[in-house]
Amino acid sequence: MTSSALKDAIRALDRATSTPDLVEATRALCALGDPEAAGTLVKVLGFNNPAVAGVATQGLIQLGRDIVPTLLVSLDARNYGARAWVVKVLSALRDPRGLDLLEHALNADIAPSVRRSATRGLADLEIDPSLKDQQLQRCMQGLLKAGHDDEWVVRYAAAFGLEQRLRTTTVDPSIADQAVAMLQNLASDAEDARVVRHRAVLALQRLNLE
């Protein structure tokens, strides 16, 4: 059932043309707190308008995990900007149902911004207790893979994510060793991007490994 308030808000959004009007209409739609608005907010992410997409992203995150099923079927194959925002929302919600999508986005998406957001998601994803070992293993493998990515920003996210997992979760010792070795590699001269080296050094310091 679509409420009349929601219908009005969607109509206002359809009528908006300038950025300030789009921002205002998107804010109004978010303010309803109605999970039924998720599909429309996802469409807004595809407008290539960062001012509007920023508002819609925050609104989607506030709608919470009820909207995860909508997000899982919302990746626009032709718009990487929109995919990056959707993956960002999914990562922020930390819902274990996002694991397949995040894993696939990291492995297969051509856009570095999508792979970066997916890496962030694998760092923070809440693990389903009944499947803990298997899901944690998949998150860690994803983070290790991200450490080999061609793009500095994905490797940066990997350094962040490996630190996050090693600090907050008990990880199987063999994979923890691989994670530390990856951080050491990212902190070394083998890494081209100075900012990635800085981030990996910081991770090792925080883990008392340096």
């Binding site: 960062p50 001012a51 997409a53 920023g54 900007g81 990056a84 960002k88 570095p112 911004s113 970066r116 500095w152 920003v153 940066y156 991007a193 900012v195």
Partner: peptide, 12 residues
């Protein structure tokens, strides 16, 4: 009001 990917490049 800019994409996070560009903010990250600038902050780098």
């Amino acid at each position: 009001a800019v994409e996070p990917s560009l903010k990250l490049v600038a902050l780098r």
